[in-house]
Amino acid sequence: MNELMMIPLIARIRSIREVTFDTLMFEVAIEKDGKEVPFSYLPGQFAELSVFGVGESPISITSTCTRPGLVEFAVREVGLVTEAMHNMRPGDNMGIRGPLGNGFPVDEMKGKDILFIAGGIGLAPLRGLINYVLDNRSDFGAVDIIYGARAPNLLCFDWEFDTWKAAPDTRVHLTIDAPAAGWNGSVGFVPAIVKELALPPGNRLAVACGPPIMIKYVLEDLAAAGYRDEDVITTLEMKMKCGVGKCGRCNIGAKYICVDGPVFRLSELKTIPSEY
């Protein structure tokens, strides 16, 4: 288990794809002792990626475990480590420890309708889950995806949208915050779209991921629409170092985001303090 506990494997960059102006997607192969090794994970899990000599950052896995091959990470440039990642080229190596965290409860989600709600880079952890659901389409009910960003060019993974729309019983609702030239879709914040669509709870689970302010309003709206707390799933973010529940900083109450999360049901969140 060394590769989880502090000693990374090598993640060799195979290709880099631009997601938005400040976000790149790295497709990596995992190597151990110079040989490529398999890397299995669940939707919603993350890994600690590192640039040797600069540092480590927890990054969610955005590829899908149902599609073997390279592992994908979407990295937004926010600090020193991510800046260094953005300066890497195919062939370079990062360090990787993972997969870490609990991931989405996919087995319990089976048989349900699912409403995905994402904002900005928040689509990164959901993309893996969405593709998982679509790859196992018959296991799930109706799928709705509400996704928004500040502007059209900030919508991540736009190359996926057509495939998603084409999937059976699947709808994609895109929105941007303010009108923009060349944009014919919805305009408005994500919570507003959630309200407007007003998908009834019924047999439906909601999975939300995005900036805290978006999550705050979405959760309120879902509650108002009658969603039960255990049917609302979200992911949390917190400063992490070890990613394995030892360095002691990513707790909210007695829960550690890195091992007890990052995926939580709203019903769980209600049992822990509202502040960090």
């Binding site: 000599g53 070890c242 360095c247």
Partner: peptide, 8 residues
């Protein structure tokens, strides 16, 4: 609790 640092 601990922190992790890299040095080159």
């Amino acid at each position: 609790c601990f922190d992790v640092h890299d040095e080159r």
